[in-house]
Design a protein around this nucleic acid. Sequence first.
DNA 1: ACAATTAATAAATCACAGTTCATTAGTCGG
DNA 2: CCGACTAATGAACTGTGATTTATTAATTGT
Lengths: 217, 217
Amino acid sequence: MTAKLPSRWQRKKDVRPGEILDAALELFVEKGFRATKMEDIARAAGVTKGTPYLYFQNKEDIFKAVVRESLVNELSDLSQLAARHEGDVSSLLALLMEVWWARIGSTRGAGLCKLMMAEAANFPELATFYYQEVILRGRTMVADLIRLGMARGEFRAVPVESAVDTLMAPLIASMVWDHSFGCILQAGEDADPSRRLAVALDLILYGLKNNNTSEEN
Amino acid sequence: MTAKLPSRWQRKKDVRPGEILDAALELFVEKGFRATKMEDIARAAGVTKGTPYLYFQNKEDIFKAVVRESLVNELSDLSQLAARHEGDVSSLLALLMEVWWARIGSTRGAGLCKLMMAEAANFPELATFYYQEVILRGRTMVADLIRLGMARGEFRAVPVESAVDTLMAPLIASMVWDHSFGCILQAGEDADPSRRLAVALDLILYGLKNNNTSEEN
DNA sequence: ACAATTAATAAATCACAGTTCATTAGTCGG
DNA sequence: CCGACTAATGAACTGTGATTTATTAATTGT
């Protein structure tokens, strides 16, 4: 006997926060932080202006919640995947990039990363949080893998941090790109980003690998 | 007999626009577009709220002027440099990156590029303009160089566009990084970005070069 | 069925920042 | 020195959009 009233509104305390955050994610990614109005978020979530304030302090608070919700979990999944893997480091890196693309790069999450970078200066504490929880964690993971590859003789000796930078750069660039100028281009003008990432990785790995022993293959 | 009055304002029609754009560049890079107030720009330029409107339509107009003013010229200088160079392609690419860093990457210009990416969705026409005038031009230049390297046997055969992406990615990443999370970090936590760029380039070039003949060296 | 409770609304508040405009003050030609 | 002109001012206007709050309507327990 709970549902059949065509009343002008519904009480759904338990699901409201999630609905609001979903709507906010969508709009933030599409328009940026400042440009999305609270009323838009509310309407998109099927409620009115005031309702979000029942669940969140203010707009910033919603932004923070959205970021925590959508990015941190994804990243820790990636670490677990890496921890489980057996086999050579190159193929693990390729796998990681593939999964990263599927789970983050090609999703709204990427737009959020880009937004985070765009707004970092305006939200110092959130930026710090994100840096600690997401970026540093990811970098450490990759750095460890590179060291492992070097220890095994799979990779030649290179400065580890710089190699991490080089490997990360295509990911960052693709996220930023797709959600800035990428939106402007005609469809097809910039084909299949996932393949491009793969090629970039190949190129970098080729530069990273110890090619002295590769002749015997 | 023009200057000695301690009057509360000065008439300087010819230099005002430049002063205003300088102030705006500084503030936009520091705070982003929305967060910088017209009054801040005016004050930083040594005038009052109304004055900028004598020279520019509105805030957007100032933003556009700043972008055109500060980025396009720099980039065309780079093309000229490339056109003049003789010698192998690898060293030209290294040189270009070095000059890029000195003239753009390490200057306010980088902050502006980052801002442009952050705001591209809000300024479609400006983004398109920038894409045509700056990005496309730069990419074409690099693509031509890579093709040249391949034709000479200096580089192995790789998909050109992807190689361009890979070479550009560290530049984009460094601009974005330095003006987002980079601001947050303690000094020294992320050492010398120019050296990092150089290492990244080495790594990528190593992956790009045709190593079959390098044994004879 | 009815009080007490609280989710949700919608109208009102409030502050800020972009823009305008009537006024003031230098400038320039004669 | 004077009048026409215009750079510059800064007070006033304005729209917008984030919060607040009084009110309404479900819900829940008894």
